[in-house]
Each structure stands twice: as C-alpha cells, then as structure tokens.
Amino acid sequence: MSQTNTADFTPTIVAFLCNWCSYAGADLAGTGRQQYPPSIRVVRVPCSGRINPIYILKALVDGADGVMVSGCHPGDCHYLAGNYYARRRFTVLKKLLTVAGVNPDRVHFTWVSASEGARFAQVVTDVTDKVRALGESEYKSRRGGERA
C-alpha cells in the first residue's frame, strides 16, 4: 500500500492537545529537554471535549499520516466532564475509522497531565513509531484535486 515504509520516513501527525494538561505537558517536556521526534503538528484546544470529531477526520482526509489526541486524565478535566464526553466520541470515532479502512494504529487517544513531561515525550515517541511502521496514510492517495 505504501512506498515510504522505511525507518527514515517521518510521518506527519496532527496532535490535538488540551491547553490545561497535555499542552502544558508538552511545554514541560521542552523545558526539561526531553527528546521526541519532530513528527507532531500541535493544535492547542481548550479541552479535549472541544475537539469535534470532524477535525480529526479532516486531518486524516487532508493527508495526515496519524492523529494524536491528549487531554486531562479522567476526573481532572478543567471543565469537569469534557474529557468524559470526549472519551465516548473518540471510542466511536476509532471504530468508524476502522470500518472505513483506516488502520487503528494511526489514531491515538490518551491522557497526559501538566506534570508529565517525560510521559508526553514517551507518548509522542510511541505514537510516531507506530505510525511510521505503517507508512503513508491509506487516505493520502485517495485525495483528488489540489488540496494537500
């Protein structure tokens, strides 16, 4: 399916990060000089509950090789329950993507707090490894027209 399935392929991964936890976790990873692959493109959102599933769909349809979403741990959402609603949406979304032919290893949901800089770096490394192993997105070649 893919011609780019090599170790030096750097996938493009869109990362939706909650402002109150995972985005701060990413900051902490930075100030702590944690190394992680340069594969993610960060979109900062106010809460994981604010991520409309169609944003994730659009990222994939528009050619991202992977998507990663990270919010506050269950029970720790700044808005109390945003991540609980999000959890149901993401669970269903991942099922939908599988039925529509997207490898489930391209789409990752997790929880990272503001104090987990090292964990953030680890998550990005793991997600990147998984997506890299799959090569370019199944959807990329199905995109018609000019839009990249």
Binding site: P74, G75, Y84, R87, R88, F90, T91, K95, T110, D126
Partner: peptide, 11 residues
C-alpha cells in the same frame, strides 16, 4: 457518560 466508561482503542 459514565466515569468508568471503557477505553476501547485508547493508548
């Protein structure tokens, strides 16, 4: 939601 909803497909 339920606080203990299953995390099917989560990392």
């Amino acid at each position: 939601y339920q606080p203990d909803d299953r995390e099917v497909g989560f990392l």
